[in-house]
Design a protein around this nucleic acid. Structure first.
Length: 254
DNA sequence: ATGGCGCGCGCAGCGCGA
């Protein structure tokens, strides 16, 4: 089974990239974030032409998530059950025995903003939800745009970013508390090239200059971790015309 | 190097992202 996550920064604009990537990589499940359109506008027919089912949880202008899959999804859930929120950031579904939760974690803007307070509260509610889901689903994958770089290795210039949003101790501690539930960041199960990132600012030629962060993650339960055979970032779509600022990240399970 | 870029909205220029 191959699963992947990709913040597409507008599904309308990125539909050709998504279709191309599905055709080339053939993931079993692809989680999308920042589709930036209402659920009813999601291009389900175009995705079906590519051989994929889809479930979306979208809204106008901001946020929005979707799950594309070769198999029919079961038990679709949206949102965090313990955190009423107008912002649409979570969609979950079960494929066979595997539960997949697709996330768009709040950005947080800056560590002294109200949005940062919201981000930390959101992460606390996420931890409670994941604790409950782990009890229910031994084979659990939680993937998406976490908007947290787990470690200095995941930051092109750790000193410049130290303490800043996406890299602060408070955010990293929240991520650690998710991992403490029994989840593993599968990317780090394997030897990786130094300076592997999943997001690069559109400004300042950040991609060309390899100035990025790894903030798109795939966390899995121990049962899935033991069967994981690969995990990588595919930076090729970031080189296309009008790219998303994020690259897809995938993991393979035997 | 925070400013630049790119998105939606909507038709100018702003809010937002990370």
């Amino acid at each position: 089974m191959k699963i992947a996550t990709w913040n597409v920064n507008s599904m309308r604009v990125r539909l050709p990239h998504v279709r191309g990537w599905l055709a080339e990589q053939r993931p079993d499940v692809l989680g999308l974030q920042e589709i930036k359109m209402p659920t009813e506008d999601f291009p389900q027919a175009d995705i079906e032409e590519a051989g994929y089912r889809s479930v979306a949880y979208g809204q106008r202008t901001y946020n929005g998530v979707a799950l594309l899959s070769r198999e029919e999804p079961a038990d679709v859930g949206v949102g965090l059950p313990n955190f009423p929120d107008e912002q649409r950031r979570v969609i979950a579904a079960t494929y066979g025995e595997v539960r997949i939760i697709n996330l768009y974690v709040p950005n947080g803007q800056s560590v002294d903003s109200e949005k940062f307070v919201y981000k930390l509260a959101w992460l606390e509610a996420l931890r409670e939800y994941l604790a409950e889901q782990l009890e229910q689903y031994p084979q659990l994958a939680v993937m998406g745009d976490f908007n947290i770089a787990p470690d200095d290795r995941d930051v092109h210039d750790p000193d410049a970013w130290r303490g800043k949003v996406l890299c602060s101790d408070a955010e990293r501690e929240h991520l650690q508390s998710l991992l403490s539930l029994g989840l593993t960041d599968v990317f780090r199960l394997f030897e990786q090239p130094e300076g592997t990132f999943s997001w690069w600012d559109y400004r300042a030629a950040a991609f060309r200059r390899k100035m990025g962060l790894r903030i798109d993650l795939i966390l899995v339960s121990s049962k899935l971790a033991s069967s994981c055979s690969a995990s990588s970032v595919d930076i090729e779509p970031r080189k296309l015309e009008r790219p998303s600022d994020h690259a897809p990240v995938f993991a393979v399970f035997e």
